[in-house]
């Protein structure tokens, strides 16, 4: 019976990955077919890219530690919204002042901007992302020590 054959296939955990991959493939194809999705012009966090800045492509405009106007969802909750470049540590600030290419290294050292989308307004995201990293490192180090 077809049901029995399906369940025989499903009950092996090795088959989960191909199954999931197939489901994803079907869905991605469906999403390609569903294009174009209309782009809503009135975006939160609009971008203005300044190609000349040493912080490119992370520059949000305005000097570090100073407020710039960005479009937040709930501006009343975040009076410090737009203090984007405050993620720069003094060392990063020094690099940005002296070289032209901090934008390419900015994610690679502590104090750099962690992610493009993570403004000061979306602080919880920053916390969760770094926590995910921490958990992943914890698992990896535990397994490493266990193998040794």
């Amino acid at each position: 019976m077809i049901i029995r054959r399906i369940s025989h296939y499903l009950c092996r955990y090795e088959h989960i990955v191909p199954l999931f991959a197939a489901a994803c493939a079907v869905l991605f194809m469906a999403s390609v077919l569903a294009l174009p999705v209309t782009y809503h012009e009135d975006q939160l966090y609009p971008k203005a890219i300044d190609r000349q800045s040493p912080l490119d492509p992370y520059d949000r405009g305005g000097p570090p530690f100073t407020q710039v106007s960005i479009h937040a969802q709930y501006p009343e909750n975040s009076p410090t919204a737009g203090l984007v470049t405050s993620y720069l540590t003094p060392f990063s600030l020094f690099l940005a002042d002296t070289t032209l290419h901090l934008g390419t290294t900015i994610v690679a050292h502590p104090g750099g901007i962690i992610d493009e989308i993570l403004y000061n307004t979306r602080g919880l995201d920053t916390v969760v992302e770094t926590t995910i990293l921490l958990v992943a490192f914890a698992i990896a180090s535990f397994l490493y020590r266990k193998v040794r």
Partner: peptide
């Protein structure tokens, strides 16, 4: 209905 909303900047 939301009984209580806690504000984390832009993330409620």
């Amino acid at each position: 209905i939301p009984l209580y909303v806690l504000e984390f900047g832009d993330e409620l």
